[in-house]
Design a protein around this nucleic acid. Sequence first.
DNA 1: AAGATAAATGAATGTTCATTCACTTATAAA
DNA 2: TTTATAAGTGAATGAACATTCATTTATCTT
Lengths: 195, 195
Amino acid sequence: MRVRDELKEQAIREKAIEMIVKVGFDGLSMQKLAKAANVSPATIYLYFKNREDLLNQLYMTVDEVFTDNTLKGFDPEMSFEDGLWLQWKNRFNHHVKYPHHILFMEQFRSSPLVNHKDIKITKFKAAMESFFCNAIERGELREFPLEVFWAIAYGPLYTLIKFHMSKKSLAGRKFSLTEERMREAFEVVVRALKK
Amino acid sequence: MRVRDELKEQAIREKAIEMIVKVGFDGLSMQKLAKAANVSPATIYLYFKNREDLLNQLYMTVDEVFTDNTLKGFDPEMSFEDGLWLQWKNRFNHHVKYPHHILFMEQFRSSPLVNHKDIKITKFKAAMESFFCNAIERGELREFPLEVFWAIAYGPLYTLIKFHMSKKSLAGRKFSLTEERMREAFEVVVRALKK
DNA sequence: AAGATAAATGAATGTTCATTCACTTATAAA
DNA sequence: TTTATAAGTGAATGAACATTCATTTATCTT
């Protein structure tokens, strides 16, 4: 029996994300992907039921890596300040390590294809929610709806990450998100949220 | 000479945005669009050079409407608190009035097609930058890089708008962004940014 | 070494796509 | 009315698409 070549599947997955980021969902064709991954078009169909399945599987994998990286060293019982700072660092590091992923995720999420099962997301969401709730119960935080917290706690970070990733600059010079600047913004955010 | 029927162009534009939001860039075909707009495929090509031109024109129009709505009543000389609050209200109202637009914009921006000329954007960016700089010169604000300000000033608003637009809920109940909640978040943000 | 099995393939299939073209229709000017 | 002109059309075109299939190839078991 011939054995499965895992490198082939890897190549397909990687090239697919690369292509989607470069040329959009619109531009991703199975034949071009096959060529880019050095594989026959038919081979793709050994690993993925069809184009939609490929896209969904990519999304699920990318999301899993994100969850793993984000929860690294994290515990919902941490103090609010420590936990949120760890989240900021984890998320920043993740997006720097996998620069393609954030673009892919954004495209995927803003496209109406999303149909994926929420296996890990639930675990992730649960950890985040219990983190916030613990902090509120401990009386560390001013009382807001969860969404308002979430927005103030993470909104700025993602806007900063976008600036960091972007080739363009807001004012004349290109913005680079150092840990120092991140800390600066973080302290403003935490001071605003804490009691 | 036969006269141009502006309703036809309008129909094409509206249906295109509708379709893109519903079915993604991927799913938008010229023939389906023609059918949806009650028009011959060839008619589309009277108003738009080709598919790409159609998409770019849509983007430019949508962006122009956004700029107009956002700058309504706005003056870069306003006090920081008044100006930012007006921005929050303007942007929120805009996105509620044109719920398709934000999804379309997001898809467009996260797709690698963007190629549009920056005519109005420049005017818009200039207004925003001078607004921030004025506030800093007047000594109203703590001194941060522009991007850090921007991130703290708008990041939370957009996260809130996304929650408001989303069908899904973060905790059990669906979140609705009332002016009261917006004001609540706004005050936290302003307090964090002001000297 | 032979046989069995699943991986891998290139070429083929039928479909859908963006775009064009020869033609018809409506209207402004004469 | 007639004529000129541009709007509007349905059908056609060739390219590109997702997917399948008859074969070939590699590797495990015996």
